[in-house]
Design a protein around this nucleic acid. Sequence first.
DNA 1: GAAGATTAGTTAGCATAGCTAACTAAATTC
DNA 2: GAATTTAGTTAGCTATGCTAACTAATCTTC
Lengths: 150, 150
Amino acid sequence: MADVKSKNMAPRDAAAIADRLHSAAIHLLRKLRVRDRESGVGPAQLSALSVLVFGGARSLGELADAEQVRPPTMSRIVAGLQRSGLVRRLPTEDGRRVRLEASAKGTKILQEGRKRRVESLAKALSSLSENEQKHLAELVDLLQQIIPKL
Amino acid sequence: MADVKSKNMAPRDAAAIADRLHSAAIHLLRKLRVRDRESGVGPAQLSALSVLVFGGARSLGELADAEQVRPPTMSRIVAGLQRSGLVRRLPTEDGRRVRLEASAKGTKILQEGRKRRVESLAKALSSLSENEQKHLAELVDLLQQIIPKL
DNA sequence: GAAGATTAGTTAGCATAGCTAACTAAATTC
DNA sequence: GAATTTAGTTAGCTATGCTAACTAATCTTC
């Protein structure tokens, strides 16, 4: 097919994509939540923990920025993580700041959750062709590229 | 040019994909939430309303299934929608069931939200190439295929 | 170096949303 | 007609989001 550069994304297609992407994200998370609940850690806590585990230690404000929530919200999320022994707070030279880092237990719990998600995803992916599976992997890159621009 | 990194999906990459998809969905929704808040309707209410607007009227239990939440949760979501005049409840032949349908106001609010999301998405998409934009639409197709299998 | 301004984080208080358990009311089954 | 099943609600818990207002530490400014 002579598909060409002139084929632009018509405005009405953008609307459909936006709606479907929105809806897909909501329902994807609802499904994954089922498995994540096995960890006994809430979704916001799990996501914040994942930043610390994969991205390294940082301050509360930095973590709030990374998670796109307000400081009071992150303050409570971290309090929960600390109460469960998944995160440690260490003092810094700047007496106002705290340094947050994942504990061994926190790292372990996160990796177990990761394993469960991979299981679920692998099962779901098995309904797609090899090609589609590889394609999906590439497409997640695109999603990650546009999120910071939203 | 600027083509997505073409790497194979080795088994160990499945973990990375699962994590990134999970994280991308979380952060996508956090971004969209900012715009959605302008509607004055919460995310769960907005999503349920969208099912009624685009999918048509149905019972509370059916709506709960579509949204993958428990009946008590949907009961409260619908109560909020009704309180705001976005949804109507009508009796059915089966006295236990209710028929839920979006009101004109509900439909209008949803479409305004859709417009805002499209604006945001279109802006973000503008940083991608033509080709990448088309690919993103395919990603949504794949996501919609795998979500029911999760 | 003290007064004031800024910055980091917490506390308080409100709303939404998720769950389970236990209830009411209607329909179906026996 | 009694018992069971089904649809939805109510009550009560937890987690997450917000803003406003606070404390404490640091930085600025004179």
